[in-house]
């Protein structure tokens, strides 16, 4: 395995895998916030309000399915710890994946062989689906169809993210930050 290939593989794929392995919802939220801040510094235009609305909507929807310890009540609705943490966890995954995808161009991560090509292309197209214009609930299927048409016509060598600062040093920062948070999650919080 040559060095450049190894670096691309590690910096391209590992942050996503490590992010998904973080179990503590609050740390996952922190990581998502770090990705957003990092995206701003990388030159992406980030609108904070839609992210805040998304975060609170997902938490709100999750609060409707009570689970675990009752924290307090708002009218007939019990606000439970389990539902609150579950909401934070789910919202963090969604927002975190959106912003980590913006920063990592997975087209540069090439696995070997046909299976490898399918895996790396799947991650690349997933990245394209989660970046760009957001899909809204109205006319959901038409928007998905348009996105699929766009994906089919993306040229292999041309990506929407590569011209923005996504060099290896930047990607290493994401890798180190995610690893640190994962280590805190796995070791410091358990003792």
């Amino acid at each position: 395995m040559d060095k450049e290939y190894f670096i691309k593989l590690i910096t391209g794929l590992l942050p996503i895998l490590l992010f998904l392995l973080i179990t503590n919802p609050l740390l996952k939220l922190l990581m998502a916030v770090i990705y957003i801040i990092y995206s701003i510094f990388s030159g992406f235009r980030v609108k904070l309000l839609p992210n805040i609305i998304l975060l609170f909507s997902i938490i709100l929807i999750n609060l409707l399915s009570p689970q675990g310890l009752i924290l307090f009540k708002i009218g007939p609705q019990a606000i439970t710890k389990g539902a609150l943490l579950s909401g934070i966890n789910r919202a963090s995954i969604l927002i975190g994946l959106l912003y980590i995808s913006k920063n990592i161009s997975l087209k540069s991560v090439k696995f070997r062989g046909v299976a490898g090509e399918i895996i790396s292309d799947t991650f690349f197209y997933f990245n394209q689906l989660t970046s760009g214009n957001r899909v809204v609930f109205k006319n959901f299927m038409d928007q998905i169809d348009t996105k699929l048409m766009e994906l089919t016509h993306i040229k292999d060598e041309k990506t929407t993210n590569t011209n923005i600062k996504t060099n290896n040093t930047n990607k290493f920062f994401l890798l180190i930050a995610t690893t640190l948070i994962l280590l805190i999650d796995k070791y410091l919080l358990t003792f």
Partner: peptide, 29 residues
């Protein structure tokens, strides 16, 4: 001409995207 593997990858990406959407919706049961 569209590469067959490209269709698998695009459908795979769509499946992951829809999994993500489904994941954020809480399940009553």
């Amino acid at each position: 001409h569209i590469n067959r593997n490209k269709i698998i990858s695009i459908l795979g990406a769509l499946a992951l995207f829809l999994s993500l959407i489904e994941y954020v919706i809480p399940k009553p049961i």
